[in-house]
Design a protein around this nucleic acid. Structure first.
Length: 594
RNA sequence: GGAGCUGUAGCUCAACUGGUUAGAGCACCGCCCUGUCACGGCGGGGGUUGCGGGUUCGAGCCCCGUCAGCUCCGCCA
């Protein structure tokens, strides 16, 4: 069976041609006599006309067509009669007068309409092969392909080699939980699926690859979100003999190319740089959405000697007091206030202090504790006016910032629903967040832990601090952020084995045997002339979602898992047979508490 | 691990304060219809209101439990 054209190809100039089309029946309009069929394939839609006066036996078959039947049509292209053209269709000037019709395969009635949005996602996932027929989904797959091509071409032009790294890897229990794969040939031993190709790409630099990239599948056995899947795709990049600026330049060019080639949108480069401290102080997060205000202001000094004990004690304990003005949100509901409070509490705050500016007065459970000077400072520095809502955080610096950061985002959602704030998806605020602390305290750890990963190099001028005040050392790490979403991150790596070794043993205080067994080959590799190097990884799924304006990365992945990590179409994950388990030397748990 | 939202026909939704036989549009089936493109007309079939229990004269609606989906917090070096 041959097609002469696709269903999106025919134009007025093709009138008179004898053609063959094949595709799916997207709709039928059966007038009893004449029958119209919208024939859809990957490329578009063409109207086919069956006229019983001209081809009675063909029209007879056409009466039996139903949605999603697969058919082949032969016929003649004709200009549509004046007044019946369809301007909303690329092929709307013409139609195909059918002279032949073959039903290649009938179809059951689809479980959901393919021409409507808003269908239950669970159902769409169960019948993903039907869902992907919908033009919006087909377009997402096509755009993803084009983006991948653009990425490969762009990086190739800059001298990068695409190199594959193993999927069966060794477990490195730092970081995200891993998927384990039992080894049949090595009883009792396991591979792990890589959470990223991190170590391999550094080893490729030691190997002299100089410029590596990979569109790499990564695996993390963590709880899912709208923007997190158990397997996802990274654009993974690593380079030798470079500084941070070189990475910025490569990635800015890459991002610019992708947006240009897939969306025809021009992006301004270079991207602005924001320090971690600035981002936290101003937006309460290390991945700020800077398209709107509601920025945080520090009132630590204002409340240092306040008679409001909550604030005063927080400051006395070395913490801070921060606040922001949710402009125009005084009409917030009691339920929403409660939501915000729960959000703050869930994040470790004891509560959430607020002030409504309404009817010319401050309505708040706490305002009676405030002095005139404190009120004046708030009014002036927050530009508080009628109809505003002021929200406070008082805690250790990180906690206060983070709580208000979450509250700020939620307030923006409320304000957007009220039509008072707009987060325009066409406004693309790319920026780099830089100067992260190299190390941070972790409540579950006695020692400092790496803020990102333990291969990140310290900022050169902070090196002397590493022994004395390690918490103050900045890492040569950078995140690429777009509209409140972390698109990716990377760093300049440690390339000297003694520095890496010292970091593992003296700073992170990992036991010697752990360093040897887990990272021994890395430390060893650095001893054999490892070049200075660094890299980055971008979340390809997130990038595609932002590129196409989808809320969830599931909409840019052909066969995603649901929020429980299940494939509801195939039923994965599924139980293994006793024989399978025995072969891989895995004993199942039996009974409760086993 | 925790919280919130949702669950009614194949799909999207409705059903007042707890009150008759749970409705509508689309889809589906049948008949009619020769220029539609959300074709139209007439008729029809289709329901364990997620599941289990409770309160009540009476539960889609209230209560308890449970399951499922989604979202968020934790988690994601």
């Amino acid at each position: 069976m041959k097609r002469s054209h696709t269903c999106g190809a025919l134009r007025a100039g093709d009138a008179g041609k004898e053609i063959q089309l094949a595709g799916w029946v997207a709709g039928r309009r059966d007038h009893g006599g004449v029958i119209f069929i919208d024939l859809r394939d990957r490329e578009g839609m063409t109207q086919v006309v069956f006229n019983p006066a001209l081809q009675p036996q063909v029209a007879e078959v056409a009466h039996t067509l139903r949605s999603e039947f697969v058919v082949a049509v032969t016929g003649k292209v004709a200009l549509r009669p004046e007044g019946t053209k369809n301007p909303s269709l690329g092929t709307g000037e013409i139609e195909v007068g059918a002279t032949g019709l073959t039903i290649l395969n009938p179809s059951e009635t689809p479980p959901f309409p393919l021409d409507e949005e808003g269908v239950n996602e669970d159902l769409r996932l169960r019948y993903r092969y039907l869902d992907l027929r919908r033009p919006a989904m087909a377009e997402a797959l096509r755009a993803r392909h084009r983006a991948a091509l653009a990425i490969r071409r762009c990086l190739d032009q800059q001298g990068f080699l695409e190199i594959e790294t193993p999927i069966l890897f060794k477990s490195t229990p730092e970081g995200a939980r891993e998927y384990l794969v039992p080894s049949r040939l090595n009883p009792g031993k396991f591979y792990a699926l890589p959470q990223s190709p991190q170590q391999f790409k550094q080893l490729l630099m030691v190997a002299g690859a100089e410029k590596y990239f990979q569109i790499a599948r990564c695996f993390r056995d963590e709880d899912l979100r709208a923007d997190r899947q158990p397997e996802f795709t990274q654009i993974d990049v690593e380079m030798s003999f470079i500084t941070r600026e070189d990475i910025y330049a490569v990635i800015e060019r890459l991002v610019k190319t992708v947006w240009h080639e897939v969306r025809g949108v021009e992006i301004r480069t270079p991207f602005p740089r924001v320090t971690f401290a600035e981002a936290m102080n101003t937006f309460g997060t290390d991945k700020p959405d800077r398209r709107y205000g509601l920025t945080l202001t520090d009132f630590t000094e204002t409340f240092r000697n306040s008679s409001f004990k909550v604030f005063q004690t927080a400051v006395a304990a070395g913490g801070v007091v921060k606040a922001f003005n949710a402009k125009g949100l005084a009409e917030i509901t009691t339920g929403q206030i409660e939501e915000l409070t729960n959000l703050a509490k869930a994040h470790g705050a004891k509560g959430l202090a607020w002030i409504k500016v309404e009817g010319g007065e401050w309505k708040s459970p706490i305002v009676k504790f405030f002095s005139e000077a404190e009120k004046k400072a708030l009014t002036e520095r927050l530009a508080a006016a009628e109809g505003d809502l002021i929200l406070f955080g008082a805690d250790a610096w990180t906690a206060a910032c983070e709580v208000l950061g979450l509250v700020r985002i939620r307030c923006a959602e409320y304000l957007e629903k009220l039509g008072k704030l707009k987060r325009d998806p066409a406004h693309l605020d790319f920026h780099w967040v830089v100067d992260f602390p190299l190390l941070r305290k972790d409540p579950e750890h006695p020692n400092l832990v790496a803020s990102h990963h333990p291969f990140t190099a310290p900022v050169e001028e902070d090196l002397p601090l590493l022994d004395r005040e390690p918490a103050k050392v900045r890492g040569q790490h950078y995140d690429l952020v777009l509209n409140g979403v972390e698109l990716g991150g990377g760093s300049i790596r440690i390339h000297r084995s003694e520095v890496q070794d010292q970091l593992f043993r003296k700073i992170l205080k990992l036991p010697g045997e752990v360093v040897t067994s887990r990272f021994g080959y890395m430390v060893e590799a650095l001893k054999f002339g490892a070049p200075p190097h660094g890299g980055i990884a971008l979340g390809f799924d997130r990038l595609m979602a932002l590129l196409l304006g989808h809320e969830s990365i599931r909409d840019v992945i052909a066969f995603p898992k649901n929020a429980r990590g299940q494939d509801v179409m195939s039923g994965a994950p599924a139980e293994a047979t006793a024989r399978q388990l025995k072969e891989v030397h895995v004993k199942p748990e039996t009974g409760p508490g086993a």
